[in-house]
């Protein structure tokens, strides 16, 4: 260890000077991370701690505030509404994410081959929906889905068909998945595309010399090279799916009997807190959801990690 050696060899004066210098260096380091750490502590760590503390109480409209220990958590683990919601967003994840990531991958590969002529415009075109705020996107799709006067319904009527009711119980999850697909395919494509650009072109040249075509290059070089980026997209998608909130919350005004108060876990927590004033239980529900997300993300990382080691 350098430190102990200098301590033995150096004179006392040199030692203190070094120590001061080291202290200054450390101070500079702290200064650099301070802006992040302050915001992180104040806006993330502290509210989280407070919510955890808060979830151990039960405040009633009549009767005040009492410490209840883990009672809110026991209730959450047995709460059918919460678990129906979690099952629903898991189903959403299983349907929506594979389609979205395959599409994003296909777009990224197509752009990277340089086959597409209007590369920039295409790239931008695919990415633009992500730049549209989710709220606007949902309102727009809500209009498009309209069962009486929406463009799809009108179009179907014009050709003598009846359009499916996109806002009905059976199709709602698919309609929401479509909105999220529209919003986030471009975003995932950009991540994948950026990762592809970092692959050295030497490898492609070598492959071409060996007689590999574009399909072979894509399959044997590019997709393996994208493993890390795909994992990142996957983690984002797990979190995003389980935390689904904006889209169902806005669609609620169009289909209030389909999207109930507990349609997704986040919507449930929101309604518990702001409609039912069950703030403490809402905090516990949020922590349970957080746990599920953590478990899901960890299980995914564990699975991919083991496979890559094999």
């Amino acid at each position: 260890m350098t430190d102990t050696r200098t301590l033995r060899q150096g004179t006392p004066r040199a030692f203190t000077a070094r120590k001061i210098r080291r202290g200054r260096k450390a101070l500079a380091g702290y200064m650099f991370v301070a802006p992040f750490m302050i915001v992180f502590l104040a806006m993330f760590a502290l509210p989280l701690l407070y919510a955890a503390y808060f979830s151990l109480f039960r405040e009633q409209l009549v009767g005040g505030n009492v410490f209840v220990g883990l009672e809110n958590y026991t209730r959450a683990f047995g709460d059918e509404q919460l678990w129906t919601g979690i099952a629903r967003v898991c189903l959403f994840f299983l349907i929506q994410v594979p389609i979205m990531l395959v599409a994003a991958l296909a777009f990224a590969l197509a752009l990277d081959t340089g086959l597409t002529r209007l590369k920039r415009t295409t790239r931008l075109g695919i990415f633009v929906p992500y730049a549209v705020p989710g709220v606007i996107a949902t309102l727009m799709w809500g209009f498009l889905y309209g069962p009486d006067f929406g463009p799809f319904a009108q179009l179907a009527e014009a050709v003598g068909l009846s359009a499916p009711d996109f806002l009905s119980k059976h199709l709602m999850l698919g309609s929401l998945a479509n909105i999220v697909f529209w919003e986030f395919t471009g975003y995932n494509m950009v991540i994948l595309y950026a990762a592809l650009r970092s692959v050295s072109t030497d490898i492609y040249e070598a492959a071409a010399v060996d007689g590999a075509g574009q399909w072979r290059i894509a399959w044997s070089i590019k997709i393996p090279a994208l493993k890390g980026a795909l994992a990142v997209c996957m983690i984002f998608s797990i979190i995003g799916s389980l935390q689904l909130f904006n889209e169902p919350q806005l669609m609620q005004s169009l289909a209030p009997t389909v999207i109930d108060e507990a349609y997704t876990p986040n919507l449930y927590a929101y309604n518990l807190a702001f409609v039912g004033q069950e703030y403490n239980y809402a905090a516990a529900v949020s922590f349970v959801l957080g746990l599920v997300i953590l478990a899901g993300s960890y299980a995914f990382m564990f699975a991919t990690d083991r496979r890559s080691r094999r």
Binding site: G142, G146, D148, F149, S253, L254, A255, P256, T257
Partner: peptide
């Protein structure tokens, strides 16, 4: 039995549904 105060409902009022 349509949800009210949304775009669909406004159009329905305008179009005489």
């Amino acid at each position: 039995v349509d949800a009210d105060f949304n775009d669909q409902w406004y159009q329905a009022l305008n179009k005489g549904k």
